[in-house]
Simulated scan of single mutants.
Amino acid sequence: MKKVLVVLTNTIEYKGTDQATGLWLGEATEFVDEVTKAGFEVDYVSPKGGFVPLDPRSFKYTDKSTMAIYSSSDFQQRALTNSLKPSEVHPEDYQSIYYTGGHGVMWDFPTNPELQSITRKIYQQGGFVTSVCHGIAGLLNVKDDDGNYLISDKKITGFTTAEEILAGKRKVVPFLNEEVAKMHGANFQKKRAYKEFAIQDGQLITGQNPFSARAVARILIENN
């Protein structure tokens, strides 16, 4: 059975503000909907394990399948209440890892050494490293055994600077994903703001924005 490790945030608010953030719900549920229909098993991990908050704005963009997964006892328990700690994960069990978004990930994905280690091991064993939207933050600082950035010289995408400006969050995020990706040698690709776009380069599969989760899933499925 193919297994995917889905990475979720523990960050509750934009740091330095009283604005709530967290997981962008559809970026998890839409991906999970696609891969489970294709016969994949899914586990959930977060930097600290346990509780995963939801970005309240993400409920404006739900559909029937999203709400079905969100309301399931499995998702409520294994994703939102009792997500795994990185120390509880065995990378050899997974064929791929998927980093979800929501602005919260900007604070707890980029500098987590345990998640970076899991990602590197899955990649080294031939697995796929995938992300959507702000989830690209989890890939920005991952390095191979030679100390090179995993995304260097790779075509990738993620939430763009233009989209961050349109979202009204440019001044509250700690960095811009597009800028850091380019600094770390990535060939950053992008399409029109807030339109579905996903791209594959070898074992890397990335989606640009919240409307790209299913596209990432479909590419992953095609490769398995």
Results as ranks from 00 to 15, higher is better:
Met1Gly: 10
Met1Leu: 15
Val4Lys: 11
Leu8Asp: 02
Leu8Lys: 00
Glu13Val: 12
Thr21Leu: 09
Leu23Tyr: 09
Trp24His: 04
Trp24Leu: 06
Leu25Ser: 01
Ala28Lys: 04
Ala28Ile: 04
Val32Asn: 04
Asp33Met: 09
Lys37Val: 00
Ala38Asn: 07
Glu41Met: 15
Glu41Gly: 14
Glu41Asn: 14
Pro47Val: 01
Gly50Glu: 05
Val52Thr: 10
Pro56Glu: 01
Arg57Thr: 03
Phe59Tyr: 11
Tyr61Pro: 01
Lys64Cys: 11
Thr66Ser: 13
Thr66Phe: 09
Ile69Thr: 02
Ile69Gln: 00
Ser72Thr: 08
Ser73Lys: 15
Gln76Tyr: 12
Ala79His: 09
Leu80Tyr: 03
Leu80Trp: 00
Leu80Val: 06
Thr81Ile: 14
Thr81Asp: 11
Leu84Cys: 02
Leu84Gly: 02
Ser87Gly: 05
Val89Ser: 06
Pro91Lys: 10
Pro91Gln: 09
Asp93Val: 13
Asp93Gln: 14
Ile97His: 01
Tyr99Pro: 07
Tyr99Ser: 00
Tyr99Gly: 04
Tyr99His: 01
Thr100Tyr: 02
Gly101Ser: 08
Pro110Leu: 00
Pro113Tyr: 03
Leu115Gln: 01
Ile118Ala: 04
Thr119Asn: 04
Lys121Arg: 15
Tyr123Arg: 12
Gln124Asp: 09
Gln125Gly: 07
Gln125Leu: 13
Gly126Cys: 13
Gly127His: 06
Phe128Val: 02
Thr130Phe: 04
Ala137Phe: 13
Gly138Asp: 04
Leu139Trp: 05
Leu140Gln: 01
Lys143Glu: 08
Gly147Leu: 07
Ser152Lys: 15
Ser152Gln: 15
Asp153Pro: 02
Lys154Leu: 04
Lys154Glu: 00
Lys154His: 12
Thr157Lys: 08
Gly158Leu: 10
Thr161Cys: 12
Ala162Tyr: 11
Ile165Trp: 13
Gly168Trp: 02
Val172Ile: 15
Pro174Met: 11
Glu179Pro: 14
Glu179Ser: 15
Glu179Trp: 15
Glu179Thr: 15
Ala181Phe: 01
Met183Glu: 12
Gly185His: 06
Ala186Ile: 03
Asn187Val: 11
Gln189Gly: 04
Arg192Met: 07
Tyr194Met: 14
Glu196Asp: 13
Ala198Gln: 05
Ala198Leu: 05
Ile199His: 02
Gln200Thr: 01
Asp201Ile: 11
Thr206Trp: 09
Asn209Ala: 05
Ser212Arg: 01
Arg214Asp: 04
Ala215Cys: 10
Val216Ser: 01
Glu222Asn: 14
Asn223His: 14
